[in-house]
């Protein structure tokens, strides 16, 4: 259909030659770069929308956006947990009587001087008899 043709009932085809001419005078709207992000943020702020948020999309889009951060955080957490576990096991292995509380260590030094059965009797008796003193008096 000729662009010169017109009808009340249907749109004529676009006139490319005329459009080229019009575009040449269409400086700022047609060809100057437009920062759409800035315009969006401005409108969003005026409307009280969450600031400069990218298109929220579905939950899996949000997950996908945070994927790299989540992987890095997971690796860091695993390494930290492994280091703590290793440190704890090493500390347990180094525990000895001398690392215990001072009163426990002092008691241990006394107890080792007696045979096991005397120590056991001393522990299970009701305190009216001193089993260790009885052993010494033998």
């Amino acid at each position: 259909m000729n662009p010169s043709h017109w009808s009340l009932d249907e749109d004529p085809p676009r006139d490319e030659a005329l459009a080229r001419l019009l575009r040449s005078a269409d400086g700022s709207a047609g060809t100057r770069p437009m920062d759409w992000d800035r315009l969006h943020d401005r409108i969003a702020a005026a409307a009280g929308l969450p600031a400069a948020r990218p298109d929220a999309g579905e939950w899996w889009d949000v997950v996908a956006r945070w994927r790299r951060v989540a992987v890095a955080a997971s690796v860091a957490a695993i390494l930290a947990a492994a280091a703590m576990l290793w440190q704890t096991e090493r500390s347990d292995a180094e525990v000895s009587l001398t690392d215990a509380a001072p009163e426990t260590a002092a008691l241990a030094r006394v107890v080792v001087a007696y045979p096991d059965e005397a120590v056991f009797s001393s522990m299970v008796q009701d305190g009216r008899t001193d089993a260790l003193a009885a052993w010494e008096s033998r």
Partner: peptide, 11 residues
């Protein structure tokens, strides 16, 4: 008026 005034900027 800006279309005319600014036309040179984009060219």
């Amino acid at each position: 008026t800006e279309a005319l005034d600014d036309a040179g900027v984009a060219s």
